[in-house]
């Protein structure tokens, strides 16, 4: 198994510097190698019936948070919206 570090970095939206690339690759391969001795998996992972989830009642709560509170940590706000560079595609 040889992983394509550039491809993974792209998927993870990470930029790995050229110098760091081979170090990263080596480290990750070592870690992944230890996974190779895991035993074969049986059938597909079925949902676990033992712990069914308790569902929430459909009731709306108004006025919990203001826009100011929610956007208070935002790097850039314009017209009440989160501003980001133009999306591509």
């Amino acid at each position: 198994m040889r992983m394509d570090i550039q491809h993974i970095a792209k998927l993870a939206r990470l930029h790995i510097e050229a110098e760091a690339l081979s170090v990263f690759e080596k480290e990750m391969e070592t870690i992944v190698k230890m996974a190779e001795h895991l035993p074969e998996a049986e059938d597909a992972l079925l949902p676990d019936r033992e712990t069914p989830m308790q569902l929430r009642r459909d009731e709306a709560e108004d006025g919990k948070f203001t826009r100011e509170e929610m956007l208070m940590n935002a790097p850039e706000v314009q017209l009440g919206c989160l501003a980001v560079p133009k999306t591509v595609g």
């Binding site: 992983m3 570090i5 993974i8 993870a12 990470l14 790995i16 480290e27 990750m28 992944v32």
Partner: peptide, 10 residues
């Protein structure tokens, strides 16, 4: 970064 990369990979 290492763990995010590892996780993305697996």
């Amino acid at each position: 970064k290492r763990r995010v990369m590892l996780g993305t990979f697996v």
